[in-house]
Simulated scan of single mutants.
Amino acid sequence: MTPRKTEIPSSPKSSDLLAWYDRHHRDLPWRVSPPMAARGIKPDPYRVWLSEVMLQQTTVQAVKAYFEVFTSRWPTVTDLADAETADVMAAWAGLGYYARARNLKKCAEAVAYEHGGRFPDTEDGLKALPGIGDYTSAAVAAIAFDRPAAVMDGNVERVISRLYAISDPLPGAKPQMKAKVAALTPSNRPGDFAQAMMDLGATTCTPKRPSCILCPFKESCLALADGDPERYPVKAAKKAKPLRRGAAFVAVAGDGTVFLKRREDRGLLGGMTEVPTTEWTSRRDGETGTDAAPFVADWRAAGEITHVFTHFELRLSVFRADVTRVERNDGWWAPVTNLDAEALPTVMKKAVSAAIPDAFKTKG
């Protein structure tokens, strides 16, 4: 624990953070860094928006490869709007929170076809687009258009809660935190300020063992003055995730193909690809055996997989059948060697891998 300080902390200054950001900013593929801005390069609203949607509930490291794929295949928002939905969902597969991908496509279409390919440059205008809420509208307005918007993600919550020693637990403390961020956001370089707050939380004001000695706010931080920065942010106690069960059926044809289906557009994993499954139920007498198979075959147990979603834990009993390929009108047969091209979410890749262990091994 950091020793208690005796001096009264000074008020935080956004200029201190911006000076730190000029020296210590992260170089990210979607970002216009201060040296780039000095050369007259402007942020691309499409790239800012795309990165912010991808980064929700996902790490920077995980997003980089997906961002490169999307911007290579669809360099502009109109390109993305014109893309096949199935291709977009397949490119998103593995990134999780699949409603984001569906809304991404709808938003691209709205910008391309209703706004002439140009994003609105205000929070209210951005928020009127499909799938854009408070956070994304503020982030795009600030970073892409330099609007003085209060941007608050998990990193910013941590920084601001420590800076002002906000003891009310999350999520209830969010309005209080956002008010503090809004008051601290400068009218000059608000986009850089937003990104600086995110970088500070990601690299310096970390959840464990923050590098307080390197922080530009160290003279102003009330949590540091109190000697216990890691106490913040205070979070409400987590509830145990409920358990749901079901079964997944992996049918493998003699020609090396697997039977796949497309999920309904609505609901969890909507629009993504799957192997046939039962309903996912919390009932102990739910369908988890071969009696619930999609068609008659010699189904054999291939193991059980577990996948944790945001609101529940799922356990699927996996069954495999080696069958003769018969064309069906409720799905299609995809080559095992090309399953990476399908819009299979992680839970379905787990199910397939239980039945076909080398299905997703790196192809040489």
Score class of each variant (00 low, 15 high):
K5C: 04
K5N: 04
I8E: 14
P9Q: 13
S10H: 10
K13S: 02
S15R: 15
S15L: 09
L17K: 00
W20Y: 12
D22F: 14
H24P: 08
R26V: 06
L28I: 08
P29S: 11
R31S: 11
P35S: 00
P35Q: 12
A37T: 09
A37E: 01
R39W: 02
R39A: 10
L50Q: 00
L50T: 08
L55R: 01
Q57W: 01
T58K: 04
V63A: 15
E68R: 07
W74Q: 08
V77F: 05
A81Q: 07
D82M: 04
A83T: 09
G94V: 01
L95E: 11
A99H: 00
R100L: 09
R100D: 12
R102C: 02
L104P: 10
C107P: 05
E114I: 10
H115F: 06
G116I: 00
R118A: 01
F119S: 07
F119N: 08
P120W: 02
T122C: 00
E123V: 12
G125F: 13
P130V: 05
P130K: 08
D134W: 14
D134Y: 04
T136P: 07
A139I: 00
R147K: 12
M152P: 00
N155P: 07
N155R: 15
V156D: 06
V156T: 03
E157K: 15
S167M: 07
S167D: 11
D168N: 14
P169Q: 12
P169M: 07
P169D: 04
P171M: 05
G172W: 13
G172C: 02
P175N: 01
Q176P: 01
V181W: 12
A182T: 05
L184H: 03
R189A: 14
Q195C: 04
M198G: 04
T204D: 14
T206F: 03
T206P: 15
K208V: 06
K208E: 09
R209T: 13
L214W: 12
E219T: 11
L222M: 04
L222I: 03
A225Q: 15
D226G: 11
G227W: 13
P233Q: 09
V234R: 15
A236F: 05
A237Y: 12
K239T: 15
A240K: 14
R244H: 03
R245C: 11
A248Q: 02
V252T: 11
V252G: 07
T257G: 00
V258K: 02
K261W: 05
E264F: 13
E264N: 07
L268A: 09
V275P: 11
P276F: 13
G286I: 08
E287C: 09
G289R: 07
T290P: 02
F295R: 09
A297C: 08
A297S: 12
A297T: 08
D298Y: 03
A302V: 00
A302I: 08
G303W: 05
I305G: 00
F309N: 15
H311K: 00
R315G: 09
S317G: 06
V318Y: 07
V318L: 12
V318C: 14
F319L: 05
R320M: 11
A321E: 10
V323D: 03
V323C: 07
T324P: 00
E327Q: 10
E327I: 14
G331A: 05
W333I: 01
A334E: 10
N338M: 09
A341M: 10
T346P: 10
K350P: 03
K350E: 15
K350N: 15
A354G: 01
P357G: 14
F360E: 03
K361E: 15
G364A: 14
